[in-house]
Design a protein around this nucleic acid. Structure first.
Lengths: 111, 111
DNA sequence: TCGGTATATAGCTGATTGGCTATATAGCTG
DNA sequence: CAGCTATATAGCCAATCAGCTATATACCGA
């Protein structure tokens, strides 16, 4: 089960577009730091910092291969997010949005 | 469709445990600022600030009823998150985790 | 062993964040 | 209208963040 702290770390890691783009890249397979950084005009230490955030959230794992330290996607935290979302899914899947409720009740009241 | 900016705002809003607890409360129905703040030992302006973050992310909508300004859950950003997650779901639903891939390939290599 | 390549760490900066107190605004209610 | 209640705004602070440059570390290959 995800602790609140886990979820906070995961959501915070996902809040940055650069990091989400990195995850998207990793969805196509493992990649090195240099490969991951290439699409962005960012300095190498900045990339390493982003990777550390992703790693701390458990969203990536790293291996060692000579001086390369490829990263690969880890889905456990995404599963936690998905499970967290499940608690709210009912609100949109049945169009039972709070706003819908509100508007409907207003319309009812007018009759 | 969710812009990157939308997703960033949403994930950032969800990264705070106080705000997630507020959403959980709102899942049970609309609530006023005072009601939302009650469970936490936080000052009232702090609660208002959290609500503003949630509102900016589109996760809540507010109405006016005398001096009360109740908030209610808005699920649109959660739907965006869910759709974003869909892009990764294949990686865990079929146990096709990158780590699984890696371990399996190591084991294969040892034979 | 030396030079090059890949990555990490240290340390700086400006912006943002989550908390606070003090104060303003707005709407009831007596 | 006076005072109470609910909420918002302003402004402060310490911590965190995303970026940078400079430098260290680690490994390979000639």
């Amino acid at each position: 089960m995800a602790t609140e702290e886990d979820l906070s770390l995961t959501f915070a890691a996902l809040a940055d577009p650069t990091r989400r783009a990195m995850l998207a890249r990793l969805a196509r397979g493992p990649a090195t730091v240099t490969e991951l950084g290439a699409p962005f005009g960012l300095a190498q230490p900045t990339i390493s910092k982003h990777l550390k955030v992703l790693e701390r959230a458990g969203l990536i794992a790293r291996t060692q291969k000579a001086q390369l330290r490829p990263a690969m996607l880890q889905t456990a935290p995404l599963v936690e997010v998905s499970q967290w979302l499940d608690g709210y899914r009912q609100f949109w899947e049945a169009n039972l949005d709070q706003l819908d409720f509100y508007i409907t009740s207003l319309q009812e009241a007018q009759k």
